[in-house]
Nucleic acid binder design. Structure first.
Lengths: 131, 131
DNA sequence: TCTGCACCTTCCCATCGTGGGAAGGTCAAG
DNA sequence: CTTGACCTTCCCACGATGGGAAGGTGCAGA
């Protein structure tokens, strides 16, 4: 199976598959005589794993660890869970930041008339006016 | 006032001040005989505006629009509010995505024993096992 | 006056994940 | 034998930020 089909099948773009190979996240794909990369079921499985982990927001380095654990028969689920809880904490941090931004901005927008006049608490606040 | 003091005073790093100048977000700073950049109160005010907008998550391009509106005496607060509401929608989108990730991952982590054994629903889910 | 230190200058490179596109090779169908 | 769809490698871009090199400036103290 060539790279385009593997991309289609896994939802990972051909560009990214090559990239993941370049950074060692997936092993170098086998090659045909044409020098085209050749993918088998195991490769697709691994790419699907990566895509699902990306969809959960894991970074490439976190995924590297997850892949190592996936292939480690003597892993302990404790290690996996620790990785997951750590990532949840990262997500919580991002969510909190965004919610704070949203709350502040939303309060300013509420106070803004939104009419034809120039007066605007949003601009005033950004300009550093204490009001 | 030279760039380091302006950075200190506004909370925008000297690196970023030069960058903002390079991309035209702030006008080219005046120069002393030494070729050092020289900042006055208006410059500091503008940099503070930018920092506060960044803290609310506005992108550089959005800030470009905000700065234009700030300096436009004939602006309508409607335009500012529209920009803010649009940004709030962007924030909501990001928050929703992160919350979905968190919910999924959190459910998986709940189901994971976190002990010395290898069995782990987190890994199983990433591996595409339907469970 | 000389020296050292803290600051400034420009320039290039790195991050992270992803995409765009050029220049060229391969293969199957018409 | 041409056309078109695929593949290859290589370089560049984004957005926002930082690191660091190589060299100039300015001031304080010996």
């Amino acid at each position: 199976m060539q790279i385009g089909q593997a991309a289609e099948a896994t939802g990972v773009s051909a560009k990214m598959i090559r990239h993941y190979e370049a950074i060692g996240l997936v092993p170098p794909a086998g090659r045909r005589d044409s020098n085209y990369r050749d993918y088998g079921p195991d490769d697709l499985h691994r790419l699907g794993f990566i895509r699902r982990a990306r969809n959960l927001g894991f970074s490439i380095e976190e995924i590297r660890d997850l892949l190592r654990l996936w292939g480690d028969r003597s892993r302990s689920s404790r290690d996996v869970k620790a990785l997951a809880l750590n990532h949840i904490a990262e997500l919580d941090g991002k969510i909190r930041l965004l919610r704070e931004m949203r709350a502040t901005l939303s309060a300013l927008a509420e106070a803004c008339d939104g009419d034809h006049r120039p007066h605007c608490p949003i601009i005033a606040s950004l300009a550093g006016e204490s009001a």
